[in-house]
Amino acid sequence: MTVFLVLGFVGLALVLVSLLVGDHLEAAFGGAFNALEGDVFSTAVIGGFVSAFGFGAAAADGGGLPTPLALVIGGASGVVVGWFAWWLTRLVKDGPSDGTVSISDTVGQVGKVLRAIPGGDSYGVVRVSVGGHVMQCNASSLLAIEAGAEVSITGVLSPTAVTVAPVWNPQS
């Protein structure tokens, strides 16, 4: 049982090292693990397998089962946890990521005027939040808009400038 517990803790240590150090561990060994590249042989999967194998076999051995049966239960536990670690690793690696926010993403958003917009061909400055990213843009409007007013972004003039219209506020 002690050997199984030691294997369980070694597997947990490997998982912890893979979480804290990640890809830097492979770089430290000069790419010696390149033959094992891929998600199936990642340190998270191997660590998950070893820890589940050790703890599963220790639980079965502690329950009074014969050693061969404890090994089978440990192996099955390791396969299940290893598969789950592989699945989670794949899910994280293949998951979508937010792209870079561009000025075209501001169209249709509501912003706040920071520097008054005189109207016509002159520019003011607005601040708008897109997907948690705050952007400041030069803004042009047909009508004059005071600083502090809310505006709707209606179009893009250039990579740094937008057209805006005042947001209707029934209280004013």
Rank of each mutant, 00 (worst) to 15 (best):
F4N: 13
F4P: 14
L5T: 12
L5H: 09
L5Q: 11
L5E: 12
L7I: 03
L7D: 01
G8H: 07
G8K: 09
A13H: 02
A13Y: 01
V17H: 04
S18D: 15
S18A: 12
L20F: 10
L20P: 07
V21T: 00
V21A: 02
V21F: 01
V21Y: 00
L25W: 09
L25Y: 05
E26G: 12
E26H: 04
E26M: 06
F29Q: 08
F29T: 15
A32D: 02
A32V: 03
N34D: 02
N34H: 06
A35I: 02
A35R: 07
A35S: 05
A35H: 04
A35V: 04
A35N: 01
L36C: 00
G38N: 10
G38L: 07
D39S: 07
V40F: 14
F41M: 13
S42P: 06
V45P: 05
G47T: 00
S51K: 00
S51Q: 02
A52R: 00
A52I: 00
G54C: 09
F55H: 11
G56D: 03
G56F: 01
A57D: 05
A60C: 03
G62C: 03
G62P: 06
G63D: 04
G64S: 10
G64E: 07
L65Y: 06
P66Y: 01
L69S: 00
L69A: 09
L69W: 08
A70Y: 01
L71M: 12
L71N: 01
L71I: 08
V72G: 06
V72E: 07
V72K: 04
G75F: 14
A76K: 05
S77F: 02
G78V: 02
V79Q: 10
V80I: 14
V80Y: 08
V81T: 04
V81F: 02
A85F: 08
W86N: 15
L88T: 11
L88Q: 12
T89Y: 05
R90M: 10
L91N: 13
V92F: 07
G99W: 06
V110R: 10
V110Y: 04
V110K: 05
V110C: 01
V113I: 04
V113M: 03
L114K: 08
R115S: 11
D121H: 08
S122G: 10
S122L: 10
S122D: 15
S122T: 06
Y123A: 14
Y123Q: 14
Y123R: 12
Y123E: 15
Y123C: 03
V126G: 08
R127L: 03
R127A: 11
V128E: 09
V128T: 04
V128Y: 13
V130W: 11
V130L: 07
G131S: 06
G132E: 10
G132H: 06
V134R: 09
M135S: 12
M135W: 14
Q136R: 07
C137S: 13
C137Q: 11
S141T: 12
S141Q: 13
L142P: 14
L142A: 15
L143C: 04
A144T: 08
A144V: 05
I145Q: 14
A149C: 13
A149W: 12
E150I: 00
V151N: 12
S152Q: 13
I153D: 10
L157D: 13
P159G: 09
T160L: 07
A165L: 08
W168E: 15
W168I: 10
Q171N: 10
S172A: 14
